[in-house]
């Protein structure tokens, strides 16, 4: 029966049921993924981010919140120029992490 409306999908991040395989795997080879303080330097300096939604800070969060598909889609925009790695105050090897995500 068509009521003219339907259930809205939940906007919650379901932490109990998300799949963190990629992030956990990443953590093994790059322990520094845990040290991000979300300052946003990477996003603001991003060459690709100048034209697109590319944001490494959010990408890391996506992986931590089980949004792997979104993260992988975002990576496609990356030019690998390395500016983010250069400005990161925590010295995170961002380029390596970006490349490792898709392994």
């Amino acid at each position: 029966m068509d009521f003219g409306f339907c259930l809205s999908p939940s906007s919650h991040v379901k932490m109990d049921s998300i799949d963190l395989t990629t992030f956990n795997r990443l953590k093994e080879t790059n322990p520094d993924v845990n040290t991000c303080i979300a300052c946003g330097s990477c996003t603001s300096t991003c060459t690709a981010g100048n034209f697109t939604e590319m944001s490494f800070r959010r990408l890391l969060l996506m992986l931590q919140r089980g949004k792997e598909d979104e993260a992988k889609k975002m990576i496609q925009r990356c030019m690998l120029c390395g500016k983010c790695t250069l400005v990161c105050p925590r010295g995170i090897n961002i380029r390596k992490i970006l490349l490792d995500i898709t392994r």
């Binding site: 990576i75 496609q76 990356c78 030019m79 490349l99 898709t102 392994r103």
Partner: peptide, 8 residues
């Protein structure tokens, strides 16, 4: 190569 499927 790393598989990123770049989309530029």
């Amino acid at each position: 190569p790393y598989i990123i499927n770049s989309d530029h």
